[in-house]
Nucleic acid binder design. Structure first.
Lengths: 250, 250
DNA sequence: TGTACATCAGTGAACGCGCGTTCACTGATGTAC
DNA sequence: TGTACATCAGTGAACGCGCGTTCACTGATGTAC
């Protein structure tokens, strides 16, 4: 009646974990190879088939794990709805980047180019939404508590897009006006676009190391979606404008 | 004394092109394999080594070609500095997406996850900067001609980042104040982040098909960096606000 | 214009390696009575 | 508590396939005199 009853069950769970761990290590060195994994674990390659029916299934497990690992990291770091949304936003974005830098290959697995010949099954979809929902949720919380005001939007979404966004808002059960949801989605893409650019080497020689730029962008995104305030190293308009002009004319 | 003198030279040029074309086709089906390429061309696999000293060199050639193909597409579509910067921006962004959708695997080759075991040589760097420089150039042109005004920036870049941005501006010889350059870089990342998300399947079930959202975002980016105006389907603030509120309460 | 030599493209065999997956099997662990 | 049977983990050999790269070679194309 135990959670993991027999010795067999426990051994199985442990080995499954060891296989995935080793597979993650292999992934970092290049392609994922079942034979290489089994070799590292000191088993014969066919033994792996007691644990995963095929290479693709192992891949799927790794993908789900990666989504969950990222989801856990960000969720655990989130101070929750009692904290100012802007601070939560900064925390969450920072965690996403931190996790990505610490787990480059797992990040590539879930946010990189699709793997040729591999079709992700349905099971990966739900875990894949966790971080994104959390991020949008933070913005929604800011909106709901009223600490956030609808940002000044020079061009509101055209009717067609607005309708699509309303559908999406209903689907994920978040009450955000189209113009704000649109900006939330943009912020979401910007965040991952930036992380991907950094990890995939597109920022070398541009803004690299990019921590400073990253933090600044996250703040700009907070402004953009309408999360008010100023946190940490962010400076408010004022004397900076002067010094900026000064350096400009040097 | 011709450009391509002997028959041998012409044959060589043509076959080099055919090899690359076939390699591009192979790439779309999965991994790039020299043997598969040579098979398709009806040659023996070792014959390829007369044209490319190794698989990696062929890859490099494909990468450079991809950058150039994208660069050409966007450059050719650009109406040039006499046209309003906002329109140029829309055109360029639209072309980037269009090219990416039409050349998914080549896009993945240059903006996707790094290829395990492959190190891009120096030759790929310059072609890789073309689109990005064009995009930032459009913004700079808007800035220089004065049609653009420094956008309202609640939080200017902190000194450390501002200094980094000044260095970058000097490096690419563009005169943009740090706060604007920062936003230009963000817009750049947003653009490619969005295209990558669409191509890599992250938008399925969110905003997909995403043409509508894409166009809207490009407009928002134009506003964000400070390119003034309204083009095409963009609507200005006004009656839309009312109708948006209406649909919201339905 | 013709000959001698050098250059180069393409061949075919081989090297040495990798991979995912299947299958009949042995022997240990678990279960029902 | 002990025995009979079922379940399952891991083995080892094999199938059938792929790959990049090398090397000595033939025969065609180009070049210099």
């Amino acid at each position: 009646m135990n959670a993991s009853r027999t010795a067999r069950d426990r051994a199985r769970a442990e080995l499954t974990r060891e296989i995935k761990d080793e597979a993650r290590r292999q992934l970092a060195l290049g392609d994922l190879s079942l034979r290489a994994v089994s070799r590292s674990l000191g088993m014969v390659s066919s033994a792996l088939y007691r644990y995963f029916p095929s290479r693709d299934d192992l891949l799927t497990a790794l993908i789900i794990d990666a989504y969950d690992s990222l989801g856990d990291a960000v969720t655990e770091a989130d101070p929750g709805p009692d904290t100012a949304a802007r601070l939560r936003w900064h925390t969450a974005c920072g965690k996403v980047r931190e996790w990505a830098l610490a787990n480059r290959h797992e990040y590539a697995l879930i946010y990189g180019s699709p793997i040729p010949g591999y079709q992700a099954p349905q099971d990966t979809v739900l875990p894949g939404t966790r971080v994104s929902l959390l991020l949008v949720g933070i913005i929604t919380d800011g909106w709901r508590t009223g600490e956030m005001t609808e940002p000044h939007v020079a061009h509101p979404p055209p009717p067609e897009l607005a309708a699509e966004l309303e559908r999406l808002a209903a689907l994920i059960e978040l009450e955000l006006p189209p113009s704000v949801l649109a900006r939330a989605l943009m912020a979401w893409m910007q965040l991952f676009g930036m992380v991907s650019f950094e990890l995939f080497g597109q920022l070398v020689g541009v803004v690299d190391p990019s921590g400073c730029f990253f933090d600044y962008t996250v703040g700009q995104l907070a402004d953009f979606v309408g999360l008010p305030g100023t946190i940490g190293t962010e400076q408010h308009m004022g004397d900076r404008v002067v010094s900026e002009k000064r350096t400009r004319n040097t």
